[in-house]
Structures are given as structure tokens and as C-alpha cells.
Design a binder for these strands. Structure first.
Length: 687
DNA sequence: GTAGGGTTAG
């Protein structure tokens, strides 16, 4: 029997009764009671705000906080500000978070530990390091919680090095870390893939009496896993007296991450037979682990198990399952993936539909993505982000920008991912001015702090637009250390625009930042080779050889009659090989008749004329296209996938093939989609 | 009404 909502209570009893309903789990009735009070006191507001946050309705909690402020009559105390900070932390709403910080300062709570600690945590969860750092610095007295909150703020903001520095400073300043501190700092080691040296780290927690702490141990399992020390991970786990679900989940993920799929599955079975109550993370771990480890069928089978036992899939599940489906697409076909999702009632959910929008785009069918998106009854930020990214991937910059404007117009708040999506759309469509003005509006109109990724996007926008010098200046003026992506964008454009000088400079920086990425060496080689600077070019090759870096072999694939056919350069390992080469020879002759000559600058070797042509015409993407055309039955289009970037000569040749064969060819390379139709490509010659 | 932590995807 539910208690009735009392009315006309004496003021001091309001909060008490609201709390009573909340304890009964009846938020609605608590709200009803609250609404019946003409002048609720600040305590009642606080209780209700916390209750909304705790039940996953942090947006409503924030609304309530705004309301209590607008009333004006009520004097805010530190507890209501505390509750608001927590709501902001859960929702990740940075604009509101700044407002709460401002309110705290206004009410002279700036040196209050309780408030300060909560604000640091809040900023960390909103991924706004500057804010957390400022509050941290302003606090004159710092306790363990302050230091711990600041460490996790650093980790949440993607600054693991800063977290480790803070940890050291904490110890130096004489504050003794506790188990919570350790479980906040160890993930920083995981991010950096560094181990606090093996034995010592395992001894440390046990000596400090944290050996039984599940939080610390699970974090250690993850740390060892990220350092590829699966043996240490296993031993931490084995020494846990009472592993909880999260610990089991951590060790299972550790096995998967270290390529031990069978052991992961065994452990999962073991966990079930031990009667450990599985949570959604357990299921997600096993589904995603299988999907990533070539066990697509098992992944889908486990997805069925998950639903059979009544665990509801969420976005992470569906995304993982779809990864499995992408592989299965090889023999099932895209529409069957859609049917699978529908059959398993995954369509109801916004997240699942969004994942499906993405998979259509990834499978090369962006029209299907757009259609599906239009059918969605409800679209949140993630859904909008997805459709913007989908169009950007396919070189539809104008569409991406117009979707962005529509999103803003419909009142959905863009976040950091939105800007990455729309900016990359601009760069692939050479919309330089649009890109720059959108970047400009990020902070000004949308309160989204640009991060390293956005800076790289701007470099890409400028570079692809041919403004190489401006791009270089932009890199030099960046407030943070330029990332590999930023230099990489510049280097790529130096090849397109044949700028040897800047290319050399960008490559030199890249060789320092990521000395083992073969792509950078190959790009510089191509730039030098195109400029006929063979001497320097062969030095680059020597450098590669000396450092033991090998170019990843190019590989293309195509699905024909529910089978995937893969090709490598010069592949003759196919029943249709002779026809394929004959076809490509014919194409070459026809191209020459049309005045189109092979673009020999894309050969990675300094061979002479005839041989150059030959090594160009057996690139894997050409072979896959030839195979596709020759096996074509009723289809009016073919889709080819390649693991590396498409080569320039292949790009020209495929444009030509699309025209004379009168079909549409879609090629997905490692970066984007190219739609070849009527002799043109959607990328407008920029790849 | 009184703070901080580990495991899943992209």
C-alpha cells in the first residue's frame, strides 16, 4: 500500500516527507508533494535534485536547480550547490557546470573543501581540465579526496601524465594515498601502457592493506593487460579473495585484449558456473571481445543468450554486435543485418537505430543511412553526430554542414564529436571558409572547447584547401602540442600539392612523434619521388630499412555472390586472373587513346618506364574492381574495400572504368569513401 | 541534504 500524499504540512516536515517517498522509491509522489508546497525550503529542493540525479535524470535535476535560482527568494546554501555540481557531473553539461562554479564563488564557498572537491570532480566528468585545475589550485587546504579527485579529473580529461605527476606531488606533499587514490591513478598507467614495475606494484597494495580491494585489483588487471603482461594480470586476479563482477569482467577483457579469445570464453563459462551474477558490462565485454577476435558467430550467439536471460542490450552491445555483423556481412548482406536487428527487437532503441545508420554508411550505402535517419522518430546528439559523420565520410561536405545547421536549429546541442564530424566533412569537400567559421563558432556559440582532434581537423581543412603555409602557421600557433594527426594532415596535402619543403618538415616531426608508422615514410618517399629527388628518396627507404619498418601490404576485397574475394598487389591467385589482367590491359589501351597516361609518380620504386606502368596496373584495388566488373550480373554498382589509401593512378583508372562500363563504383579506402560515377569521383580529386 | 574509485564500444 502506498502512502497518501499529505497536504498542508508544517514547513519543517516537508523535507522529511519528501524523503520518505524517495525511500519508498516513489519519485513521482515525492514530486507531487513537493509541487504542493507553496514555498519549499532549500533543503526540500536539495533532496529532490539529488534524487533526480541518482535515478538517472540529471537533466531534470539541473532544471530544478535553475528553477530554485530563478525563484530569487531562496538563499542557496552549500548543499544545494553540491547537489547541482553532482548533477552536472553526471550529465556532463559543461555550460551548467561553469554556472555552478560561478554560483559557488558568488556565495563565498571558494575555500570550502566539500564544494571544491565536488567541483574538481564535476569538471573532470565534463572533460574540462582547465576548470578542474583552477579549482584545485585555488584550494589552499587539500585533503586526500582533493588529490584523488584531481587525479581522476586528469584521467577523465585524457591527461594520464598529469595524473601521475599529481600523484607524485601528493606523496611529496605528505598526503597519504588510500585505496581510492590508487584506483584513480592506476587507470592512468593503463592509458599510457606503462606498468608500475611488475612485482613492486603487486606487493604495494597488499602491504598497504589494499590487496583485497576489488577496485584496486581490477584496475591493476587492466593495467597489466594494457602492458601486454597477461601473466601479471592473471596473477593479480588469482590472488583476489573475493573477485566481484567487475573483476571478472576485467580479466575477461584482458584475455581478449591479449589475443587469448579461447581463455576469455573459458573464463566466462567458469564465471557463469560459479554463479557470479552477470551484469550488462559482462555481456558487452564478451560480445565485443568475440566480435574483435574473429568470433563473429559466437558474438551473435552470445547476444541471443544475453536477451534470453533478460539482460537488455544497450548501445555498446549493439555497436559491438554490429562489428560482428560487418564481418558477417561477407555472407549475409547488409539488409540481413538490418533484418537481424529488427527481429531481435533492437530497433525500438534510439542507440540501436543510430548504430544501424552508421553501419549502412560504413558498408558504403550512405543513401540508406540518410533514409533511415529520416525515419527516426527521435534524434539525440549522438544520432545527429552519426548522420553528419556518415555524410562526411562519403565526401558530402555540404550535406554535413546543412545537417549541422538543421541540428542546431532543432535545438539539439552539438558536442565535441559533432564538430569533429562536420569539420572533417568540410575538409574532404574543400569547404575552407565554412570549416574555419564553424571552428570559430565552437567556443563562441556552442561552448565546446576545441581539443587536439579539432585542431587537426582545421589543419586538414586548410591543407586540403591548398593553404599549406597557413596550415603550417596554424600548427605552430596551437595552444597544445601538435598531434601526429595534425602533422599527418599537412604531410598528406604536401603530396597532393607537391610541396617538397613543407613535406620534409612535417615528415621530420612525424618521424619523432611516431617513428614506427610506415605511412609517413611512404608519403615522404612519394613526395620526393614525384619531385624526382631520387637520392633523398632512397635515403628515406634506407631509413625505413634500418629501423626495420615495413610498409603494410595493400589489400583490397569485394563481395560477389556472398563470398569475399581478396586481392594483393600482382595477385594471380584467382580463377579469373587472366581475364582480369586482359581487362585491365584493354582499359589501359583505351585510356591512352583518350589521351590519359598512367600516373607514374605513384610507384614506390624508381623503376624505368615500362616496368613502372606494369607495377601500377596490378595494384590490388584495380584487381578487385576488374574482378567485380567481370563477375557483375544484374547489379548496377560494385563496392570495393581497401585497407590503405587508394593510389592516384588507381583513382584515375577507376574513374575511367566507371564511365566506359556505365556503372557506379564505390571504393572505401582507409580514410573515406569514393563514389565513382560518369567519369567523376565524389572526392573531387582530393584524397 | 555531507565528496573521490575499477571492468564494456567508437
Amino acid at each position: 500500500m502506498l502512502a497518501k500524499v499529505p497536504t498542508g504540512l508544517p514547513l519543517h516536515l516537508n523535507a522529511k516527507f519528501i524523503k520518505k517517498f524517495l525511500n519508498l522509491g516513489d519519485l513521482a509522489r515525492a514530486r507531487q508533494l513537493f509541487d504542493g508546497i507553496s514555498e519549499p525550503d532549500v533543503q526540500s529542493w536539495t533532496i529532490l535534485i539529488s534524487a533526480y540525479t541518482k535515478t538517472g535524470r540529471s537533466r531534470d535535476a539541473i532544471k530544478l536547480y535553475t528553477e530554485v535560482k530563478n525563484r530569487g527568494k531562496i538563499n542557496l546554501d552549500k548543499f544545494v550547490i553540491l547537489a547541482a555540481a553532482k548533477a552536472c557531473a553526471v550529465s556532463g553539461d559543461l555550460a551548467k557546470a561553469k554556472e555552478v562554479h560561478f554560483d559557488a564563488l558568488n556565495h563565498k564557498f571558494s575555500s570550502d573543501l566539500l564544494i571544491g572537491n565536488a567541483l574538481i570532480d564535476m569538471y573532470g566528468k565534463c572533460k574540462y581540465f582547465k576548470g578542474g585545475e583552477q579549482v584545485f589550485r585555488d584550494l589552499r587546504i587539500k585533503d586526500v579526496i582533493t588529490w584523488t579527485s584531481f587525479c581522476s579529473c586528469c584521467v577523465n580529461c585524457g591527461l594520464p601524465e598529469a595524473a601521475l605527476r599529481a600523484f607524485r606531488d601528493m606523496v611529496v606533499s605528505g598526503v597519504r594515498p588510500n585505496a581510492m587514490t590508487l584506483s584513480s591513478v592506476v587507470p592512468a598507467c593503463s592509458r599510457l601502457s606503462v606498468c608500475i614495475r611488475g612485482a613492486r606494484c603487486m606487493v604495494l597494495p597488499s602491504r598497504m592493506g589494499w590487496g583485497e580491494n576489488q577496485f584496486v585489483s581490477s584496475a591493476l588487471v587492466d593495467m597489466y593487460s594494457s602492458c601486454s603482461s597477461i601473466k601479471h594480470a592473471q596473477s593479480v586476479f588469482a590472488n583476489m579473495p573475493r573477485p566481484d563482477v567487475a573483476s571478472w569482467n576485467a580479466i575477461i577483457s584482458a584475455y581478449f585484449a591479449n589475443g587469448e579469445g579461447e581463455r576469455a570464453l573459458d573464463t566466462f563459462q567458469h564465471m557463469r558456473s560459479r554463479g557470479v551474477k552477470l551484469d550488462r558490462v559482462s555481456w558487452n565485454s564478451i560480445v565485443s571481445g568475440c566480435a574483435d577476435n574473429g568470433k563473429a558467430r559466437e558474438a551473435l550467439e552470445l547476444l541471443r543468450d544475453m536477451q534470453r536471460v533478460g539482460c537488455k542490450p544497450n548501445q555498446i552491445t549493439v555497436t559491438s554486435a554490429l562489428t560482428a555483423c560487418t564481418v558477417l556481412e561477407a555472407w549475409r548482406g547488409g539488409n540481413e543485418v538490418h533484418a537481424y536487428i529488427t527481429r531481435h527487437c533492437l530497433m525500438e532503441d534510439l542507440a540501436a537505430t543510430t548504430a544501424l545508420v552508421l553501419i549502412y554508411a560504413k558498408a558504403g550505402d550512405v543513401e540508406a543511412s540518410n533514409r533511415l535517419f529520416r525515419m527516426m522518430p527521435l534524434r539525440d546528439t549522438v544520432a545527429w553526430n552519426t548522420i553528419i559523420i556518415a555524410n562526411s565520410m562519403h565526401g558530402r561536405g555540404e550535406k554535413a554542414v546543412s545537417l549541422f545547421n538543421e541540428m542546431v536549429g532543432s535545438g539539439v546541442k552539438p558536442n565535441s564529436v559533432t564538430f569533429t564530424g562536420v569539420l572533417s566533412g568540410c575538409s574532404h569537400a574543400q569547404m575552407v571558409d565554412e570549416g574555419l567559421s564553424i571552428f570559430d563558432s565552437m567556443m563562441k556559440d556552442h561552448e565546446v572547447e576545441p581539443d587536439a582532434e579539432h585542431y587537426s581537423c582545421v589543419v586538414d581543412v586548410l591543407s586540403r584547401g591548398g593553404r599549406l603555409v597557413q596550415a603550417h602557421n596554424f600548427i605552430q600557433q596551437m595552444s597544445s602540442e601538435p598531434s601526429a594527426a595534425a602533422w599527418g594532415a599537412l604531410l598528406g596535402a604536401c603530396r597532393t600539392y607537391k610541396n617538397v619543403e613543407l613535406g620534409r618538415l612535417a615528415a621530420r616531426r612525424l618521424f619523432e612523434i611516431e617513428p614506427n608508422n610506415p605511412g609517413n615514410y611512404v608519403l615522404l618517399f612519394n613526395i620526393l619521388a614525384a619531385a624526382k629527388q631520387w637520392g633523398e628518396a632512397s635515403e628515406v627507404r634506407r631509413l625505413m630499412r634500418d629501423r626495420g619498418i615495413r610498409k603494410m601490404p595493400g589489400c583490397s576485397w569485394i563481395r560477389v555472390n556472398n563470398r569475399v574475394h581478396t586481392f594483393v598487389v600482382g595477385d594471380k591467385d584467382n580463377d579469373m586472373s587472366s581475364e582480369m589482367y586482359k581487362f585491365l590491359d584493354e582499359v589501359r589501351v583505351k585510356m591512352k587513346l583518350a589521351g590519359l597516361y598512367p600516373d607514374t609518380e605513384f610507384v614506390l620504386q624508381d623503376l624505368d618506364g615500362e616496368e613502372q606502368e606494369h607495377s601500377l596496373c596490378n595494384h590490388s584495388e584495380k584487381l578487385a574492381v576488374a574482378f567485380g566488373i567481370l563477375s557483375l550480373r544484374d547489379e548496377s554498382s560494385i563496392r570495393v574495400f581497401k585497407n590503405l589509401r587508394i593510389c592516384g593512378d588507381c583513382h584515375n583508372t577507376i574513374k575511367f572504368i566507371a564511365k566506359f562500363a556505365g556503372i557506379r563504383i564505390v571504393v572505401r579506402d582507409s580514410l573515406r569513401f569514393h563514389h565513382f560515377e560518369e567519369g567523376l569521383c565524389s572526392c573531387r580529386e582530393f584524397w
